Simulated scan of single mutants.
Amino acid sequence: MADAATAARPSSSEQPLMQPGPLARRSPFVTGMTAAAGVAVTYGVVELIIAARQVLLLVGLAFFVAMSLEPTVSWLVRHRLPRWTAVLSVLVVALGVVAGFLAAAIPPLITQTRQFAVQVPGYLQSLQDPHSTLGRLNAQFEVQQRVQQLLSGQSATLAQGVLGAGQLLLDLISGAVVVAVLVVYFLAAMPSIRRALCRLVPADRRPRAILIGNQIFDQTGAYLLGNLITSLIAGTTAFVWLLIFGVPFPLLLAVLVALLDLVPVVGTITAGVIVSLVSLTVSVPVLLATVGFLVVYRVVEDYLLVPKIIGRTVQVPATITVVAVLLGATLLGVIGALIAIPVAAVIRLLLREFVLPRLDHT
């Protein structure tokens, strides 16, 4: 009865059962609910990222391109040009270069594609000639028979493949338009984006963060410009070589080499294999000479052109370059391989500026 009297004293008409007390933070129920909520939120975020993976890739690629163009836009702004005019000027020049390249390359490409279609029957006839190179390869590996077996009864699959190729082309065009629009918005709002990112850093460390951010933007811009220059050199050199040795479709292959050279390591190997296979249609000596040329050019580009054009600014060791490209290609495909080196450069810079000094003083 004494406990009942004691319990009745703090009660009131508004709270007849007394004021409820808080749950203990160490209560098993609270701990379990907090852990379950954390797991549920994490799972939901992961599912959202997976569902929006393609869109996030396009956004990331657009921001990477905008970062690469930002040093040029900033240079124009420093020379008393309004930012919108600077952004418009850079985009007009970039679109003009792309349009000029397409205008110069597409007609010869169409011509050489038609020539290839005309020469296909000749290649098929060479496969049946036991005295030709293709005929000897066909006799040894039964190329024609294997191709016929692969194509027989596969008309539905081929039709689906054609539809899939059309869908892929449509996706590429729409993706390019989305990236171009996002690049315009990112470039126009880049000062605001950089200020917002700097506000995430404590006030006493913002000046150093601004300097590090400037270096990151400079490295990214230098990498994109240097990559374009080395790809142009690779395509031009390949075109001259193929033209001298009479390899079919030199311009088509040179454009392919230039485009694939934009993707480090993986792209150059793929381009080399394709060019070597096409050079085999001329003769085995031309094949061997082309393979040797590609290997020598690969060494020259890796140890002479890239260090001179890109290496001084990006400063990523060769081992880290290869590992970064392979990881990027595995995780994000072609886009991952394309941005792997600048991402590795940024990570290396952050480790050098923030992590290593603390480790050296512990």
Rank of each mutant, 00 (worst) to 15 (best):
L338E: 07
I193Y: 12
L228I: 10
T313V: 05
G21Y: 02
V65P: 07
D204G: 09
M33K: 07
V278F: 13
L305Q: 03
R205L: 12
P307S: 04
L187N: 13
T113K: 08
L359W: 05
I110G: 00
V39R: 02
A222F: 02
L327T: 09
S231T: 08
V257K: 06
R352T: 09
V177P: 13
V93P: 06
L356G: 12
G246C: 05
V291M: 15
A254D: 06
R53F: 11
L228K: 00
S283I: 12
G161F: 00
A51E: 09
V73E: 11
V178Y: 03
I309D: 13
A340K: 10
W75T: 15
V201K: 06
V162K: 01
A86T: 12
A105T: 13
L168V: 06
V41N: 07
P22V: 01
L225G: 05
V295K: 06
G213K: 01
Q115V: 08
Q160T: 02
I49N: 12
L81W: 04
V291R: 12
Q112R: 10
Q128E: 12
D129Q: 02
A99D: 01
W75M: 15
A324S: 06
S89G: 11
T319F: 15
L134E: 00
T230Y: 08
P357N: 10
Q219R: 07
V55Y: 15
S13F: 10
S231Q: 11
L169R: 04
V291Q: 11
L88M: 03
S13H: 07
T319C: 14
Q19L: 11
Y297D: 03
L232W: 05
R136G: 09
